[in-house]
């Protein structure tokens, strides 16, 4: 097991290194930081621009490989370089990671809980009214891209604010209101009101996927011998379903949960950007528009590490939950 794990880790490290290098090369050759200076008035002299770009390791007159070597040298020491405005990338991203983490964690927990409950309830009465309804709704949700869903939520939220509540209950921009001074509970309610719509936008899609997944695994388990045995032993139907069927059916879903978390760190991009949360995803889009090579590369590295950590965690979780995996 230890040898297997070590080989896996080594393989992952190489993958991250190659993916990061590729992302840097691509970003460095496709994005053009020099164009940022083109529309400034008065136009800075070329020598000044050159000096500034060189200081930031963004000068396109330096050979790509040399820039890459400088960048990689910094990354190995944990320094992702500077943004186009000259501030360190590390500090900026550290702050933003917290924002993204909060949003993703809450969205993922809500989405997976809702999905698991709905999927399990649907499977218990297969082809019943609840099964049909939840299948229909999840099909509809899966057909909606996040950009449409988020915009719909903003429109509906604004409409509800105007027509239903008469005041702004749902806040659709940012994580909290600036300069709010209403004590602890005021801050909490302000944060919650900012949180409702982005969380729905993030978790609805997840809930749809999770419910389909949970329904299928639950259906497989429901017909299994051990559930019948449990009932024959004298357990009531609900006891057998909760203690034996649901637990077993949760194993693949737990694995999927770990995997999704890694993918979501950048997957929340659209939600963050549309709802104005200053997280990693928003910065990803902004940095592409501002030709910020170092930030783009840093986010690519974070995303790659997140995906690989998540898939490693998924494997370990699977092994921990399912004795058959450990034995084999």
């Amino acid at each position: 097991m230890a040898g297997f794990l070590a080989r896996r880790l080594l393989n992952y490290l190489v993958l991250v290194a190659v993916a990061a290098s590729l992302a840097y090369m691509l970003a460095a050759s496709a994005l053009d930081p020099r164009s940022n200076y083109a529309d400034r008035t008065p136009k800075p002299p070329p020598a000044v621009v050159d000096a500034q770009l060189t200081a930031l390791n963004l000068n396109d007159h330096t050979p790509l490989l040399q820039r890459y070597a400088t960048w990689a040298g910094g990354v190995v020491q944990g320094d992702f370089g500077r943004t186009v405005t000259g501030s360190p990338v590390n500090e900026d991203l550290k702050r933003r990671m917290g924002v993204t983490f909060r949003l993703v964690m809450i969205g993922l927990i809500f989405g997976s809980l809702l999905g698991v409950l709905v999927g399990a309830a649907a499977a218990v009465k297969q082809y019943g009214w609840f099964d049909r309804l939840s299948t229909g709704v999840s099909f509809l949700v899966l057909a909606m891209p996040v950009v449409v869903l988020a915009n719909m939520l903003i429109l509906l939220g604004t409409l509800a604010n105007e027509r239903l509540f008469g005041h702004r209950l749902f806040l659709v921009s940012g994580e909290y209101s600036d300069g709010l001074d209403t004590g602890f509970w005021g801050t909490v309610s302000d944060r919650l009101r900012h949180l409702i719509l982005p969380t729905i936008s993030l978790s609805l899609g997840l809930a749809a996927v999770f419910s389909r997944y949970q329904r299928n695994t639950m259906l497989d388990v429901l017909g299994a011998d051990f559930v019948r045995t449990a009932m024959a032993k004298g357990l009531s139907r609900s006891q057998a379903l909760i203690h034996h069927a649901l637990r077993t059916a949760l194993i693949p879903v737990a694995t999927y949960f770990a995997f999704t978390f890694g993918a979501l760190l950048t997957g929340a991009t659209f939600t963050e950007k549309i709802f104005g949360w200053h997280g990693l995803g928003e910065q990803l889009i902004n940095s592409i528009f501002t030709n910020d090579v170092n930030t783009v590369a840093a986010i690519a590295v974070i995303a790659a590490i997140a995906v690989l950590c998540a898939s490693l965690a998924a494997d370990l979780l699977h092994a921990a939950l399912d004795p058959r995996v450990r034995a084999g």
């Binding site: 590729l22 992302a23 690519a300 790659a304």
Partner: peptide, 8 residues
């Protein structure tokens, strides 16, 4: 799979 598709 590791490279973020959206970014690329």
């Amino acid at each position: 799979l590791v490279l973020p598709a959206f970014l690329i």
